[in-house]
Design a protein around this nucleic acid. Structure first.
Lengths: 155, 155
DNA sequence: GCAATCAGGACCCAACCGGTCCCGATTGTC
DNA sequence: GACAATCGGGACCGGTTGGGTCCTGATTGC
């Protein structure tokens, strides 16, 4: 199965939480989100730092500081969240990046051939926003051809 | 980044190798493929066992035995290869499957919300065959909307 | 000045995965 | 009929990775 880091799941939870708390004050603190979401505080802090680094949230230091969304959920493709937490979206096969170190390089007939796969996945992940995930709905373009055996649970 | 197991990459290499060796005898042996591909023999054997279990190759035991493809590469979506090696395609967040064990269950606002994402990825991976990967070409449906910065290298 | 909060990094431990090995079952060949 | 080649299935181990925690410093409102 495609391993998605657990931190990325937390990131989605945190972002949805931030969106729902809009209006309940200008900023949400890291401990506050942790308490509201049930995720351990240091982990929430780590996630928020990563999201801030990617520009998905803005931070305010000092007393009365905290975090705030920079965009509505509908404008945040899940691809960006994954990229913020896990790095660039790519099915990593030759992991280490040491191209020359791969002894089978000259024989390997599919070196670099994962690129089309990565591109397709990236496209798919760009078409789904956090708002879509929140409602568990799918953009019309992807509704039909899926061989999905069971429908996702209703909201 | 989305971690794809290295075994899956090996599987693609092995399958392409099998396809190219068609006609060079009815069956290809595990040691033979290992020698031709530069992948350690025990690893090739493990990959082939998994592929045989998934029905992507057929095996013949005994002397003069070996493996053979069951379909042309064009009829093998990469999704099936990934499923054969890594198990069902799913971005696993709550990994352990112990649903009740997740303490944040009642608070977690996105439980089960990865389903649309998984469906989209599954669709994308079903649209790409090993033949596509071999040529590093992309099905027309996916050529346009990709925000790809650089084109994939020509074959 | 003080307290609250974010920023950044160091660190540890458990889980997972790649890789190897062994033994049994099957089947063509001499 | 014995032998050799090959697959099938499982056990096993070491390295790597990622989740999670903690500490220290910088910033800012009260």
């Amino acid at each position: 199965m495609l391993r998605l880091s657990k931190l990325t799941d937390y990131a989605v939870v945190v972002l949805v939480r931030l969106a729902r708390a809009e209006g309940a004050g200008p900023m949400q603190t890291s401990p506050g989100i942790a308490a509201a979401s049930g995720i351990p505080e240091p982990t929430v802090a780590k996630v928020l730092k990563l999201l801030a680094g990617a520009g998905l949230v803005v931070s305010q230091r000092g007393a009365r500081g905290g975090y705030r969304l920079t965009r509505p959920l509908a404008a945040v493709p899940v691809a960006e969240v994954i990229a913020a937490i896990d790095g660039p979206i790519a099915l990593a096969a030759c992991v280490d990046g040491a191209e020359g170190a791969c002894s089978t390089e000259t024989l390997c007939p599919v070196r670099g051939r994962w690129d089309p796969v990565n591109a397709a996945i990236e496209t798919a992940l760009h078409a789904i926003s956090l708002a879509d995930m929140e409602q568990a709905s799918i953009p019309p373009a992807f509704r039909v051809p899926v061989p999905a055996p069971s429908p996702w649970p209703a909201v």
